[in-house]
Amino acid sequence: MIVLNNVTKKFGSTSAVSNISLLVKKGEFFGFLGPNGAGKTTTIKMMTGLFTPTSGTIEIGGYNILKKPLRAKSIIGYVPDHPFLYDKLTGREFIAFVGGLYNIPGKTIKERTGQIIESFEIGEWVDRLTEEYSQGMRQRVSLAAALVHEPKALIIDEPLVGLDPRSAKIVKDVLKSLANHGITVFMSTHSLHIVEELCDCIAIIKKGEIIFNDTLKKLGSLRDRTENTFESVFIELTK
């Protein structure tokens, strides 16, 4: 579903991402880990068309993001690490607006919005302007909007940062349910326990280079071998 082939991104003379390759299969829950400034968000921005790679190719569902950007983007849903919304729109309007951008008919969006509001428990707030929302509400509304066009792959950057336990649980449940329904989830995160709980495969990026790319089981065997926690394995790898 998602293929990154020798992708590099340079800003001036600085390489943010160096020659990375990744393969995320259909229906896989993929965790993308790395310390701060390792290149996670840059990689995600290239996958979603916000940055142009300096070299290498990215394919989403078989479509090259540079050559067929509209096709590629139509099958992904994206939620950034800081989901800025339009202050002067309500949550419901925001969801309708995003649906419109993906060319979904109004009637269909209306039906889907009803279901989404229920699963994300945002009914009480959805008709208020988003400028009044807390971080958790913003995260829930932007995730809800990213799903309104029923994407085949969801790319989500640090989904649980700043969420209260209830919001975090709702988001985790939704992500689990998506994966169970065969939707590919590509998630960047710092939370190792979330990776442990949700992911099938993981990649760890350090200073723009992939230093681990395998199944969670494989990382688990490393942990068992060293009789350590996930946290200490991660710290050891990214030292």
């Binding site: 607006f97 649906g99 419109g100 951008l101 979904i104 008919p105 109004g106």
Partner: peptide, 22 residues
């Protein structure tokens, strides 16, 4: 109404409506 139909292509119409609402 962002759910409503329009003579314009849907993405364009929601963009215009969004701008007017804001």
């Amino acid at each position: 109404d962002l759910y409503g139909s329009s003579v314009l292509p849907r993405p364009v119409s929601v963009l215009i409506k969004r701008d007017v609402l804001r």
